[in-house]
């Protein structure tokens, strides 16, 4: 079997949409289970009271990363037909900083806001309105600073390539980093003791 199945013609258009829908259902389900339909739970991360954001995100990243790079090493996943986020260092760092500031103010991120709306959070409706408005403003003004958004362009750059090591080394380092960050997070949680449980 060769992955991604979509790229090797394994899905008809209808099946492809159904698969995408089911993947979304899984995504939304686990976000809600984690408590990410709650802005109080999400933002507690930034006050060092609840490290769920860090723990959920990094668990997901290392689980997917181990599987992903294992499949690549076995020759079962073809990177040339898989979407890899291209690197534009300047706009990614600038965008990341603004996004983080917006996270602390707005209380959600775009994915978690869908779960919040679906579970009845009225503030999330206003948040979604803001996201659409922000996209509207960006899209209309982008031609004015198009050059800026292309600064630091490096194409499909990988962390392991940049460090000059094998992918597995970075995957292992990410796992160790995650475990270290989890223990540190749990230690801080115990001291401030305010994890939101439901």
């Amino acid at each position: 079997m060769r992955f991604p199945i979509e790229a090797f013609g394994g899905f008809s258009a209808g099946t492809g949409m159904l698969v995408a829908l089911l993947i979304g259902v899984g995504f939304g389900f686990f976000l809600e289970r984690a408590g990410f339909g709650s802005a109080r739970k999400l933002t507690a991360q930034f006050y060092l009271k609840d490290f769920a954001v860090l723990k959920v995100m990094f668990t997901a990243i290392v689980v997917a990363s181990v599987g992903f790079w294992w499949l690549v090493a076995l020759g079962m996943l073809d990177l040339s037909v898989t979407f890899i986020n291209p690197t534009y260092l300047v706009s990614q760092i600038a965008g990341g900083l603004i996004l983080g500031i917006g996270f602390a103010i707005g209380g959600y991120c775009p994915g978690t806001s869908c779960v919040a709306v679906a579970t009845g959070k009225l503030d999330a409706l206003w948040y979604v309105g803001g996201v659409v408005f922000g996209i509207f403003v960006y899209s209309l003004t982008e031609p004015l600073f198009d050059g800026f958004t292309k600064l630091g362009s490096m194409g499909e750059a990988y962390v392991w390539d940049w460090l000059g090591v094998a992918p597995g080394v970075v995957v292992l380092a990410a796992v160790l980093m995650a475990v270290g960050a989890f223990s540190l997070g749990t230690w801080v949680e115990r001291r401030s003791g305010n994890v939101l449980k439901n």
């Binding site: 603004i98 996004l99 996270f103 602390a104 959600y108 948040y127 979604v128 803001g130 922000g134 403003v137």
Partner: peptide, 10 residues
């Protein structure tokens, strides 16, 4: 916050 994030995500 949503506005900032919509802009930043783009």
């Amino acid at each position: 916050g949503g506005t900032l994030m919509g802009f930043a995500a783009r």
